[in-house]
Structures are given as structure tokens and as C-alpha cells.
């Protein structure tokens, strides 16, 4: 079960920061925290075998919030997001860096979350599709564009495409259609709806530029 989300950092920056520092300190010291307040460390069912590679409690910065998770050494970020934090908008379609369905932003740069170890992102800002909309629920321009253009079909690839495009647009806010295609070329859509996806992403880019001017 996913851990309930911690409050946004702005809401109670002090305690959140101190907890994070505390946990990071614990991890750096090589010890495993055992505290009743951390639900993920609740005693396991007796039948559960020891997991593979020594799990540790990490604090991750996901969608602007601090999230704690017990993470194995070999665990991928996609796994942590989906199965530890309940952020199932990040999809696994190949799990081997072939399709881009699991694309998330690390410090605003798109990455395949299936091929990033969670341990390597401790000090980075992770953004998933769930974090694309504003905290007040206002949809990101790319999300608005999907709705306006009836973008995508089955949409299993959609979150990956949106995250790849969001990252790409930070480096090139005014791309040509060809540049946009290259920007999301690491993502597969098996509905092969590429033409409508490009319509959508170009419309989203336009909305972003208008928003930036406003």
C-alpha cells in the first residue's frame, strides 16, 4: 500500500527538511531505521522471506513532496514509484529502456525510470505524470492539449510522452514539428498515433508559450 503523501515542502518546510536530513544521515551511516512511525518498516508477515539486497529507507523528492520508501539496492525508480509510492501513472511496458512508457523527469531532464536505480536519485527532484498538474489541480498545458486535441488512443504510452515532451520543452520551448518528433523519439506508441500526438504536443507547446507570456 502506498504511504500517504507528506505535506508539500512549502507547507511545513522545517519539519520535512529535518526528517529528510535525519533519514539521509541514517542511510549514510549504513544502519536501517526501525521506528513505529515509519509504516513501511512495520513487521512483515512471518512467511515473508528476506528480500534480496538489503532494503534501506530513503527519502525521495517526488512531485515536490518528500516521500519515504524502503528501497532495495537493485530497485529501479519505476518500481519504487509504482509499487512503493502508489504512483501508477508511470507505466512499465518493456522494463528494459526500449519504449519510454516509464519516462519521468529527474531535475527536469527526461529519464527512463525502468533503467534508473532509485538509490541514485536521492538528491534529485523526481517529477511523474501525477506531478505535472499544478498543486491546485490546474492541468499542465500539455495535459490541456491532450484534452483539446483528443490526443493519444489507448494512452498507455501517454504519461511517458508527456514527461518526455515536458522535459524537451524546457530546453526548446518553441520547437518545429520535426524537432518535437526528435524530442519524443525515445517513446513508442503502439496505437501508432504519432500524427495526433504531434498535433497535441505542438498545441501544448503553444499553450505553454502563451502561459509564459501571460
Amino acid at each position: 500500500m502506498p504511504e500517504p503523501e507528506a505535506p508539500p515542502p512549502g507547507a511545513s518546510a522545517g519539519p520535512a527538511l529535518s526528517r529528510r536530513k535525519f533519514i539521509l544521515g541514517v542511510i549514510a551511516g549504513g544502519a536501517v531505521v526501525s521506528a513505529a512511525s515509519y509504516r513501511l518498516l512495520a513487521p512483515r508477515a512471518a512467511s515473508r522471506p528476506a528480500l534480496l539486497g538489503g532494503e534501506r529507507l530513503l527519502t525521495l523528492r517526488v512531485n515536490g513532496r518528500l516521500r519515504r520508501a524502503e528501497v532495495a539496492q537493485q530497485e529501479t525508480l519505476a518500481w519504487t514509484l509504482r509499487y512503493k509510492l502508489g504512483l501508477t501513472g508511470t507505466k512499465l511496458a518493456c522494463d528494459r529502456a526500449e519504449c519510454g512508457s516509464c519516462t519521468v523527469l529527474l531535475d527536469d531532464v527526461p529519464h527512463y525510470a525502468c533503467s534508473v536505480l532509485t538509490h541514485t536519485v536521492r538528491n534529485r527532484a523526481v517529477t511523474t505524470v501525477e506531478g505535472l498538474a499544478a498543486p491546485d489541480g490546474k492541468l499542465h498545458p500539455l495535459q490541456q492539449a491532450v484534452i483539446a486535441e483528443q490526443g493519444f488512443q489507448c494512452a498507455f504510452c501517454m504519461s511517458g510522452f508527456l514527461m518526455a515532451a515536458a522535459g524537451f520543452l524546457k530546453t526548446n520551448p518553441n520547437p518545429t514539428r520535426t524537432e518535437m518528433a526528435h524530442g519524443v523519439s525515445g517513446n513508442l506508441c503502439r496505437c501508432q498515433d504519432y500524427s495526433k500526438i504531434l498535433d497535441t504536443l505542438m498545441h501544448g507547446a503553444e499553450l505553454m508559450r502563451k502561459g509564459a507570456q501571460a
Binding site: Q143, I147, S159
Partner: peptide, 8 residues
């Protein structure tokens, strides 16, 4: 579409 674009 709203559930699809937000990951819900």
C-alpha cells in the same frame, strides 16, 4: 481523457 492525462 482527464483520468488518462493525470495518471489516475
Amino acid at each position: 481523457l482527464p483520468a488518462k492525462v493525470t495518471g489516475r
